[in-house]
């Protein structure tokens, strides 16, 4: 899923000074799953934000709504009326959902209530860890189903760097496993360590965000 995490309330307060009627909106999909922007989080944030604005000397009226999916135009219509009444919208959806709302209600300022951070898996309750970086050239078939782009701190393609800790964790922190250690373990378990001995050439990043904004066109779906 796409993960996001709340921005500091002070940052939101900074955005909202001068506004009077604020609509806080969430999304019941990814950001609900990662407990950042679902209905529960929206209903938690709305009063907190109202209180913070009050304390800041800029009282606002806060209303809230949670859309089924903030990245689909038909669902966004559900807040048309509420949006028309508001003079600012705070969205807790991912950056995609936020931009659709900003596009639909072009005269109403839209402020992010979350930072969109990753494409992650909920590994355990309360723990999300990266799985993909949308590199546009998937190598999972060469790495035993473990992604070295998103899960290696250096996106290495040819095995572990010299930084792997004694206990097999990544040099960046002691809680993140060195993904190359896991790749090697999985290859070993399958008796296929040989597969990792080929030198992989430089990766083509042109189909990743590095290549510029993505424009995926499917003629067969356009009529």
């Amino acid at each position: 899923m796409i993960t996001a995490e709340w921005k500091p309330i002070e940052e939101m307060v900074g955005y909202l000074r001068g506004h009077k009627k604020v609509l806080v909106i969430g999304c019941a999909t990814c950001v609900a799953e990662c407990a950042a922007g679902g209905e529960r989080e929206v209903e938690t944030l709305a009063p907190l934000l109202a209180m913070a604005m009050q304390n800041d000397g800029n009282p606002v009226e806060v209303k809230s709504a949670t859309l089924e999916r903030q990245c689909e135009p038909e669902f966004v219509e559900a807040i048309a009326e509420a949006a028309a009444e508001a003079d600012a919208i705070v969205s807790l959806a991912c950056g995609i959902g936020m931009q659709l709302v900003a596009e639909r209600f072009v005269d109403t300022p839209l402020y992010p209530g979350v930072n969109t951070t990753s494409l992650s898996l909920r590994e355990e309750p309360g723990l999300w860890t990266s799985r993909c970086a949308a590199c546009g050239d998937c190598v999972l078939g060469l790495t035993f189903g473990l992604c070295p782009v998103a899960r290696c701190a250096k996106s290495l393609m040819n095995g572990p760097c010299g930084g792997t800790r004694t206990d097999g964790m990544c040099e960046i922190n002691q809680d993140t496993p060195c993904i190359w250690r896991l790749i090697v373990e999985r290859a070993t378990a399958r008796g296929r360590l040989e597969d990792l001995t080929q030198v992989r050439p430089p990766k083509n990043w042109s189909n990743s965000p590095a290549g510029g904004p993505k424009r995926m066109l499917r003629e067969d779906l356009r009529s």
Binding site: G159, P160, G163, T166, D167, W180, V184, L193, L196, V199
Partner: peptide, 23 residues
């Protein structure tokens, strides 16, 4: 090139050296 002969996963370290030599 550099080599970390005693880093984990230790079973891969010589193979990684071999890759560097091949490269």
């Amino acid at each position: 090139a550099a080599w970390t002969p005693l880093g984990p996963p230790i079973e891969f370290r010589v193979l990684r050296l071999a890759k560097k030599v091949a490269a």
